[in-house]
């Protein structure tokens, strides 16, 4: 008890001091730290602004000197003669992306559905890490694999060298699986559990539950996942570079060499000067704008969805 009363005395002494006001130094320190953290968060904004500014600064003049129509719509890319039409490259990027999405999306969505609805915990504990590991493999290794394994295989079936869109499709399809699968699995995982039970209780099979109930319920999330996979496919550089053959032309077949916006930048950069260099930066501007547009699309979709839910 002696201890307790000592404590009591001490409390009375403290009480005599009364309530302490916020000390100036504490206040300044906390406010200073807060602003420092805000500043760090703003580095992200600064990054976007700097990219816009510097890539834009280097590339903008191609639109004004060469002309928007001639640059974007020109069917010939021949820098030696000063011809900078990037339509074949845009076409190449779209073809490569489209094929990769067509192959990769079913694989990725299938893997995601497998992980969230079918796999036992044991199987899942093998497949999920594999998907995550796949995301970690550098694109140059995928390119290397494509160049030395896939390309000869395509070459032997088609008769050419094996450089072309078809090889890029397969490699890119694998590379976008982790992006799409992870996001799709998240979307499936955030469906409230009652819905599943309700469907099974009505006698639906697993597959009926998946495609009549779960996929519609996770539709928005899956669309977001595909859009982000699209961004990954358009922006992918090294793996595509190593297998497409790098010919800035409209190809006759999917096994003929082709070039994309990203690959042409890497190929031409070492020797490009003057307008040629400006044109490469101009292509980077377009890639940047496209990737921003895809992010904006995802944001817009989620905003539309929450607006729809609010109306319901």
């Amino acid at each position: 008890m002696a201890e307790a009363s000592a404590q009591n005395d001490e409390n009375h002494k403290k009480a005599a001091h009364g309530l302490r006001l916020v000390s100036r130094s504490t206040h300044l320190k906390e406010a200073g730290l807060r602003n420092l953290f805000l500043l760090c968060a703003f580095v992200a904004v600064l990054g976007v602004a700097l990219i816009f500014l510097f890539v834009g600064w280097r590339g903008w003049s191609i639109f004004s000197t060469y002309g928007v129509g001639a640059f974007l719509g020109g069917a010939e890319w021949d820098p030696i003669d000063g011809i900078y039409g990037i339509l074949p490259l845009i076409y190449g990027s779209l073809v490569v992306m489209g094929g990769a999405l067509a192959l990769g999306t079913p694989l990725a969505v299938g893997t995601a559905i497998f992980l969230s609805e079918i796999a036992s915990p044991r199987v899942r504990s093998i497949v999920r890490p594999a998907v995550e590991l796949l995301a970690g493999i550098p694109s140059v290794i995928f390119g290397f694999f494509g160049l030395l394994i896939l390309r000869p295989f395509i070459a032997s079936t088609s008769g050419g060298l094996g450089f072309g869109a078809a090889t890029a499709w397969i490699i890119l399809a694998i590379m976008i699986v982790p992006t799409i699968a992870t996001l799709t699995e998240d979307a499936l995982g955030s469906i409230q559990p009652g819905i599943r039970e309700a469907s099974y209780a009505m006698g639906a099979t697993t597959w009926q539950t998946v495609y009549k109930v779960l996929v519609p319920a996770a539709k928005i999330g899956i669309i977001d996942a595909i859009i982000l996979g699209m961004g990954r496919a358009i922006g992918e550089t090294m793996a595509v570079l190593m297998v497409v053959g790098n010919a800035p032309v409209f190809p006759d077949s999917v096994t003929d060499p082709i070039a994309t916006l990203t690959t042409q930048i890497v190929i031409d950069m070492p020797y490009a000067t003057g307008d040629h260099r400006t044109a490469l930066f101009g292509m980077a501007i377009i890639l940047f704008i496209v990737s921003m547009g895809l992010v904006a699309a995802v944001r817009l979709i989620s905003r539309l969805q929450s607006a729809m839910e609010a109306n319901r």
Binding site: A44, I51, L228, I234, G235, T237, T262, L287, M292
Partner: peptide, 12 residues
């Protein structure tokens, strides 16, 4: 901005 930065192609 962070989302945009995350989606910038690495060659850009």
């Amino acid at each position: 901005a962070a989302d945009t930065l995350a989606s910038v192609p690495s060659i850009v």
